[in-house]
Design a protein around this nucleic acid. Structure first.
Lengths: 185, 185
DNA sequence: TTATAAAAGCAAATTATTTGCGTTAATAGT
DNA sequence: ACTATTAACGCAAATAATTTGCTTTTATAA
């Protein structure tokens, strides 16, 4: 029922995982999520449904697994010259990606699965990105807020609004960043 | 497929909705969520499964519907003497309720359903509660932050941490409230 | 090489979901 | 008050998804 974390690169398990993930990504791109089923995924991936059921348990777990994979940052935050500029650029891009259709779906998939571990991982990705910005700022001799404070005052409001209604406007994101950067305590 | 909003109090639809909601609440209390199925709910509620499928579409929508109902605040925020005290008391209780086992599950149920309307409603409940606190503070002649700022700086961090890993400690909640109340801009 | 164990395939059994059709019950018009 | 209309429900058959026991494959270590 549990997905193995460290798969040998060329092993059979790794190949199955890769083809199943690929099938999920492709199906999600070409049809509504309500129509994606495990037998369908299995067919496209060239495996039996029971393989998927045994490995992932159910559709939600599988979707969450795929979503975490896609939410993993693929690059370091861009260096915009200062901590504030870095954070602003990062936050705007983050908000845009996460509020897009696919972004929202991925977040929802991660949260909908019962295992909380996936959600934790996503928060950890974000923390690391902000950590990079913070380290860089400190290396320049700037003052930079604590990472946890940035999580509370920038990341949390962005995600909350995406999940519970709004799409946060660029203007709002800029304000969040300005506020956390101006706090002096 | 869509759930009627305004049901006549004594109508048949209202009775079905009530018995189905009741069955869901009872089943969720006595067994794991993974084991709750629509045929089971239907049996306990004394209706046919097809009735539930036609009215709610699938299990997630039904669970979301029940969860929104349970997340509706049943009372006004207590008056603790000042805006800050009110907000602090409210935030602590809110954090405690939402981070409890059932609280977490309800939030997840609301977010997991594809219809975003349920999630919006929940945020609206919260906004209204804070609105009451804000009005009361202003009636006393106090300064009180904008409701949207409280959503960003207090509610969002609490919910974000509940969803993505942590249980926010009382200490942390107190800090969030203190920070939003001390901001003067 | 060969032994071992984990993961996959296959197919039957079970369970959930969809759907067509007849019935009931609430609502509006006479 | 009575009847026409319509939305929602029950029932049961058809379809689709999920689970499970058993066999076979394949990667790994002896």
């Amino acid at each position: 029922m549990t997905v193995k974390e460290n798969l040998r690169p060329g092993g059979r398990s790794a190949r199955v995982q890769a083809s199943v993930h690929k099938a999920v990504r492709e199906l999600m791109a070409e049809m509504s999520r309500a129509d994606v089923t495990i037998p369908l995924i299995a067919g496209k991936a060239g495996v039996t449904p029971s393989t998927i059921y045994r490995r992932w348990g159910d559709l939600q777990q599988l979707l969450a697994d795929v979503a975490v994979d896609r939410l993993r940052p693929d690059m370091q935050p861009v260096d915009a010259g200062s901590g504030k500029a870095d954070l602003q650029a990062w936050a705007e891009q983050y908000a845009e990606e996460m509020s897009s259709g696919p972004g929202r779906e991925m977040i929802r998939d991660v949260l909908a699965a019962q295992a909380g571990a996936n959600a934790c991982k996503c928060a950890e990705f974000t923390r690391q990105q902000i950590g990079v910005i913070a380290e860089r700022a400190k290396a320049r001799g700037e003052v930079f807020p604590d990472v946890e404070r940035v999580m509370d005052q920038v990341v949390a409001p962005i995600i909350y609004r995406i999940l519970f209604g709004d799409v946060p406007a660029t203007r709002r994101v800029r304000d969040l960043v300005a506020r956390v950067m101006s706090a002096t305590d």
